[in-house]
Structure formats: C-alpha cells, structure tokens
Amino acid sequence: MRAAGPWNTHDKTQGSVVLEGRALEKRFGSTVALAGVEQAVRQGEALAVMGPSGSGKSTLLHCLAGIMKPDAGEVHLLGRRVDTMGERERSALRRTRFGFVFQFGQLLPELPAEENVALPLMLGGVPRGQAVRQARGWFAPLGLTGMEGRRPGELSGGQAQRVAIARALVTRPAVVFADEPTGALDQTTGHEVMNLLVSAIKENGAALVVVTHDRQVADWCDRVVEVRDGRIVTPAAGAAR
C-alpha cells in the first residue's frame, strides 16, 4: 500500500481490457453530448480525458461508470454488458467494482474521515469494526496520519480529496473514475493529490479514468484522449510520452 512508486515505468500496451465503451451516443434534448465514442480502458492503465468545456467528458465518464445509460452503444466491464443492467444492478456494480473521486462534496460532512472511508466496506457487508480498521490502513500511505477522527469540514481541500481517494480505493475496485479531482485545489496541492491518486491506483492494480483540464495532470497518466463535440478526436500528444 505504499504510495510512492515509479508508476510510469508500466508498459501501457500491456494488460487486458477491463472496461470498454463501443459506439456510445448520448443526447440531452437537442444537445449531442456523445456522438459515437469508442474507448477501452486496460487493466492498471491511467487514462486521462481532456477537452474543452461542454465537449462531453463528464457524460462519457458517467456512461462508462454505469451512472447514465447511453442512448446507443454498449459498455462492457470484464465481458459483462453494463448499459443494459437495471439500476439496482448498476448501483451494486458501482459500489463493488468502481471507485469515484469527484471535484468536491463526496464526503459525508457528519462522518469522521475514517468512517467516510469505511462506509463502502460496510455497505458491502464488512462488520463495522473491521471496516474501520481496514479504512485506517489507508491513512498513512496517503499522508493522512492523525486525520482519522476529523470531519471533512476540518480537513483542507487536499486532505479531503485524499480521504476521497482512500474511499474510492478501499473496496479494491477494478476502475476508479475521477472527474476533475483536483479542480478545486491549487496547482501544487492538485499535483500532489494527483500524484498520490495515480500511484495508489497503480499499487492496487486498478485502472483510472480521469477527466482533467490540467495538461500536467494528464501527463501523469499513461494515455491521454481528447474529446471534442462528443467525439474522441485524437489520442492527444501526451499519449506519445
């Protein structure tokens, strides 16, 4: 569970496909948010999604994560079709196979940090004591020693995001989705958090799909794609790194 690690030495071409979106389309009224997107995510891969505001990045992420049903196209997770599942099933999938980090506000304000992290485990049926013990294990590697009992309101923005990362990873998900996870942080803190996120993901063998506006953040990732008007235009320059 150690955080620091040479994650970018991974060979990004290796690993099997964990999650795949095929010909995804989504429209809101007359707005076309996704116009036929093909996107695969490999095991242990960190994928950055970039693009101008309103181009459909969040929509893509929500479709891949089973939050939203695409109008057309398919989503497969480890060979299982996700987009045709009912809400209950998708909900269970999100709880067990996916982790989420949002810009802010995902922590329950009334729960201490450690219980915020333990909550997904408890939802999965782990007894409370064990869940909290397991949750505490994530604090030191993420530089959160001593923050276990604090409320989200008593944490700095960066600390809160690190708690959110611990919460996303505690169930050992196959894929972690992050929508502008550093959007509410200053650059230095943002990079610190991103660094931790990517390395923690690698440590745990999960895949990462991160939406970001920050070129440098994208550069931490193995692969960068750019979305424009609901289409993936190019594997952007960062992918060549």
Partner: peptide, 16 residues
C-alpha cells in the same frame, strides 16, 4: 441533495 446524489453515484442503495 448533493451528498445524497454523490452517495448514490458511488453505488449506495436507495434503501440504505
């Protein structure tokens, strides 16, 4: 509502 919505996104069942 924001907290509830995000909990739901993360897969918390409505029943919980």
């Amino acid at each position: 509502r924001q907290t509830y919505a995000l909990l739901r996104l993360a897969g918390t069942p409505l029943e919980v």
